[in-house]
């Protein structure tokens, strides 16, 4: 069963159409990437999903139906526009925000303490939030997002202010949550994070859906007829089926002729006795696909 079903949502602010017919589904228990460049309509889509904004048209089903007050307790949300009460002690602010998610004060206190321990914030518990660094504040917000053990987590740019150590820790936490069956929607423009973490994704640009599906399928779909080959010695100049070769740090990027298959090339190299360390089909990175799509190529239907 899908945790979120977004169907043909549109939303305009004045004359500007922020979201224009976006549709996607998020399966239960998956880590789903919501991608797009700045101003693409990601945050607006999330706000529509969470019923902060009403869509002009289209519909959203979240956790099996329309958003309700009761469902707010089952959802954890880390907004992009983030901040916390600046003039309040860290622990007090966190416990309060967790109680708003339906935890009792005592449970909220225990959970917040556990997370502060894990996030290395326990020494700062009595400090005012304004005294904490940006990274610490972001970790504090992640505590608010996760402490009530939601079944659906929506996080907007979760790694933006984190150093590599904390980034890794947050990744571990997200993987852990997924392993427990939590559905996670991660909104970002950091493609390598999506490549590393997400099962499926939707890419929106200027309010429209550009890509939607499984990460590996999308990469295959955008794959060029190219190979990456790392020979032990040199590479013969006239390999069968190769129209051009480009050398980069000991490896070759081979472009195939229209009729050739990777198998033709491999067969020729083996027959010629070329020793190989690496032979693979060159898959485009998500970054490359992203740039290609955003620069105006290849819009998918709905």
């Amino acid at each position: 069963m899908a945790s979120i079903i977004v169907e043909q949502i549109t939303k305009s602010f004045g004359k500007q159409r922020a979201v224009d017919g976006v549709s996607f589904e998020v399966e239960k228990g998956e880590l789903f990437g919501l991608l797009g460049p700045n101003g693409a309509g990601k945050t607006t889509s999330i706000r529509i999903m969470l019923d902060i904004f009403k869509p002009d048209s289209g519909s959203v089903s979240i956790l099996g139906g329309p958003m309700s007050e009761a469902k707010k307790e089952r959802i954890g949300y880390l907004p992009e526009e983030r901040g916390l009460y600046q003039d309040v002690q860290l622990e007090r602010a966190l416990v309060y925000l967790c109680t708003l998610k339906g935890l009792t004060r005592s449970v909220a206190k225990t959970r917040v303490e556990e997370y502060m321990e894990r996030f290395d914030l326990i020494a700062h518990r009595k400090k005012k939030i304004k005294e904490l660094s940006k990274g610490m504040q972001q970790k504090a917000q992640l505590i608010v997002t996760l402490a009530h053990e939601p079944e659906l987590v929506i996080i907007d740019e979760p790694f933006s202010a984190l150093d590599p150590v904390n980034t890794q820790m947050v990744k571990d936490i997200l993987r852990e949550a997924r392993a427990k069956g939590v559905t996670i929607v991660m909104c970002t423009h950091q493609m390598h994070q999506v490549e590393e973490l997400c099962d499926r994704l939707v890419l929106i640009n200027r309010g429209k859906t550009m890509l939607y599906g499984r990460l590996d399928e999308i990469r295959r779909q955008y794959a060029q007829p190219e190979l990456i080959v790392r020979p032990v010695g040199g590479l013969p100049a006239d390999v069968v089926g190769v129209s051009s070769a480009e050398r980069l740090n000991g490896e070759y990027r081979l472009r195939l002729t229209a009729s050739a298959t990777p198998q033709d090339v491999l067969r020729d190299l083996v027959q010629r006795g070329v020793a190989l360390e690496q032979f693979e089909i060159a898959m485009p990175t998500l970054d490359e696909i992203f740039i290609q799509v955003v620069q105006g190529q290849g819009e998918l239907d709905g």
Binding site: I52, E73, L97
Partner: peptide, 17 residues
């Protein structure tokens, strides 16, 4: 105003109406 200015608002309104 502070809740708006310090951006806590979005967390709060996804917790309470």
């Amino acid at each position: 105003v502070e809740e708006k200015a310090n951006r806590t608002m979005e967390i709060v309104i996804t917790s309470v109406s």
